[in-house]
Design a protein around this nucleic acid. Structure first.
Length: 283
DNA sequence: ATGGGGGCCTGCCGGC
DNA sequence: TGCCGGCAGGCCCCCA
C-alpha cells in the first residue's frame, strides 16, 4: 500500500510518541512478517531510546540508543497506530487488541504504537546503525525524489536506452526510490507520457520534465496526509485525503480532467499491475 | 544485464 | 445468505 507520501505521513505522525522516547517493552506476537524477525528482536528493542525517526524510500528507520537501527516496512497493508497520550496529561485508554496486531511498542511516556498488517507483506529488521546504508533492502535504492541527488541528468541517464515501459521504469526503485503504482500513474498523466511508451524512446526534455512533476505530486500528497484507499491510516488513525486529487488512478471510464479533453480514463495491465491513463493526453 | 512473471498473504467486493 | 473469482498501494526471486 503505502508509497513514499504515506510512509512519510506515518513517520511524522510517530515522532511525538517515539522520537526521544524509550521503548519500555517491545511486544512481539509472532516470529515473522514477510521474513523472520531478527534474533532476539524484543530484547534488543526493550530499553532502547529512539534517537531519531528517519525515512528512506518506503522504509521507516528508527535509530536507537543501543547503536542499532530498526527498519520498518509497511508492505501493502501495514499500519502503525498510536494510542495513549505521549505527554501523559490526560486520562486515556488503549483500544482492545485487534487481529493482526503483530508488534506493539509500549513506550515509557505512556504511548503505545501498534504495528498491524493483515497481509504480512511488511517487514522489520535490526542492524548496526553505521551499516544501514549497506543493508540488503537499502543498498540498491536510487535517489530520494525529494532530495538533491535526484535531478534531471540522473533521470535522463537512467531512462536512456531502456527498453522497459515508462511505467516500469518509474516503479523501478533503483532509478528513483519511493514511487509506487498510484504516484507513477499520476506523474505520467501530468507529464503527458503514456505508461506504455518505452523509457528509451522518450525525448530527453520530456524525461527531464518529470523531475519537478514527481516532486510536486509527492509534496502535494504529503501535504494531504497521503492517500487512503482501503487500508491506509495516519499514525493517529486519521485518513489521508490525496485520493480526492487523483487525475487518473482508479478513474477508469471516468472523464479526463484536462481542459478541453473529451476522452475517458483507460486502464491497462502492465506486468500484472493496473495502469490508469488518458489515451488522448498521454502519448 | 535486462525484462517479465510468479508468489507471498488476507480482506473485500461484485456477480451468480 | 453463501461461495467464488478477481483485485489490491510492494518487492524479492527466478527464468529466459
Amino acid at each position: 500500500m503505502p508509497e513514499l507520501p504515506e510512509v512519510e505521513t506515518v513517520r511524522r505522525g510517530l515522532i511525538p510518541a517515539m522520537e526521544g522516547a524509550v521503548i519500555a517493552h517491545a511486544q512481539v506476537n509472532r516470529p515473522d512478517l514477510r521474513w523472520p524477525f531478527p534474533e532476539r528482536m524484543a530484547e534488543r528493542l526493550t530499553g532502547a531510546r529512539v534517537e531519531r525517526l528517519r525515512r528512506r524510500s518506503k522504509y521507516i528507520l528508527a535509530d536507537l540508543s543501543s547503536g542499532e537501527t530498526l527498519l520498518i516496512h509497511l508492505g501493502m497493508s501495514g499500519r502503525m497506530l498510536i494510542s495513549g497520550d505521549p505527554l501523559g496529561q490526560f486520562v486515556h485508554q488503549h483500544p482492545a487488541a485487534q487481529k493482526h496486531d503483530h508488534v506493539v511498542f509500549h513506550m515509557e511516556n505512556g504511548a503505545r504504537v501498534t504495528f498491524n498488517d493483515p497481509r504480512r507483506f511488511g517487514a522489520m529488521d535490526l542492524m548496526v546503525t553505521d551499516d544501514a546504508p549497506a543493508h540488503k533492502l537499502l543498498a540498491a535504492l536510487g535517489p530520494e525524489p525529494l532530495g538533491n541527488d535526484f535531478h534531471e541528468a540522473i533521470l535522463v541517464a537512467a531512462f536512456k536506452g531502456r527498453n522497459t515501459p515508462a511505467k516500469s521504469a518509474l516503479l523501478d526503485q533503483r532509478i528513483v526510490a519511493g514511487l509506487g503504482n498510484i504516484y507513477v500513474c499520476e506523474t505520467l498523466f501530468r507529464a503527458g507520457i503514456s505508461p506504455k511508451r518505452k523509457a528509451g524512446r522518450i525525448a530527453a526534455p520530456r524525461v527531464a520534465a518529470m523531475v519537478p512533476i514527481i516532486r510536486t505530486v509527492l509534496e502535494e500528497a504529503i501535504e494531504a496526509g497521503g492517500s487512503s484507499l482501503r487500508d491506509f491510516r495516519q499514525a493517529d488513525g486519521e485518513l489521508g485525503y490525496f485520493q480526492h486529487s487523483f487525475d487518473v488512478y482508479g478513474r477508469e471510464g471516468q472523464p479526463c480532467r484536462s481542459e478541453g479533453c473529451t476522452a475517458t480514463i483507460a486502464r491497462v495491465v502492465q506486468s500484472g499491475r493496473s495502469s490508469f491513463y488518458c489515451p488522448n493526453c498521454q502519448r
